[in-house]
């Protein structure tokens, strides 16, 4: 097919879809649609992980991002009853400047990174590091301490989220009982 292999076709299609969906996230007015486009972007990125032989990360990415984090976002948006009518919009000049700054940043990045070596990625069954067995070995030997620290971080985030969400209701109930 035009001299390209299947992997290259898949890479092109997935990249195109990822960039299109990411653009839709920014340019859609309705926040619910934005979340759904972001989920599609994450699926495209998970496809890239599969192409890169990182099977474990692809599964974790779908479970954690598309399954947990995005549902949390959707939940909050539904809770706040946001839609396109309530969506605040920046001034047209600010948006124009934001687009221009993004374009300039892209220009600088492409210019700076253009000189990277044309290395070919090792792909197609040769790499086994993305499997659960090998990642688990590295995670529980070399990175055991950071792994434990991550558990403390998650616990702290859990307690913090509950405390932040709860304090206001306590104040309100106190005010209600006082008045």
């Amino acid at each position: 097919m035009l001299g390209y292999t299947i992997t290259q076709w898949l890479f092109g299609i997935l990249s195109f879809l990822a960039i299109m969906f990411a653009l839709m996230v920014v340019f859609t007015r309705n926040p619910v649609n934005s979340v759904l486009y972001l989920v599609l972007t994450f699926f495209c990125i998970a496809g890239h992980y599969l192409l890169l032989n990182a099977q474990f990360l692809a599964v974790v990415h779908i479970v954690v991002y598309a399954g947990a984090i995005m549902v949390l976002f959707l939940f909050i948006i539904m809770l706040m009853n946001l839609n396109a009518d309530t969506e605040p919009r920046k001034h047209i000049g600010t948006r124009f400047i934001a687009g221009m700054v993004g374009g300039i940043l892209l220009f600088v990045m492409v210019g700076a990174l253009r000189g990277a070596e044309q290395l070919q990625l090792v792909q197609g069954g040769a790499s086994q590091i993305g499997l659960v067995k090998n990642l688990g070995k590295v995670l529980f030997s070399e990175f055991l301490f950071p792994f434990e620290i991550a558990s403390i971080l998650l616990l702290a985030a859990l307690v913090g989220a509950i405390m932040i969400g709860k304090r206001d209701t306590n104040i309100n109930s106190k005010e209600n009982t006082n008045s």
């Binding site: 920014v26 687009g99 990045m109 044309q118």
Partner: peptide, 29 residues
Amino acid sequence: LNGIPINFYIMLSAVLFIIGVVGVMARRN
């Protein structure tokens, strides 16, 4: 299966990152 040059991944990541930057600057929600 043929490899894809690392340059393509660098460019894709740069584009996705900059879409994120533009979103942070251009949206108020």
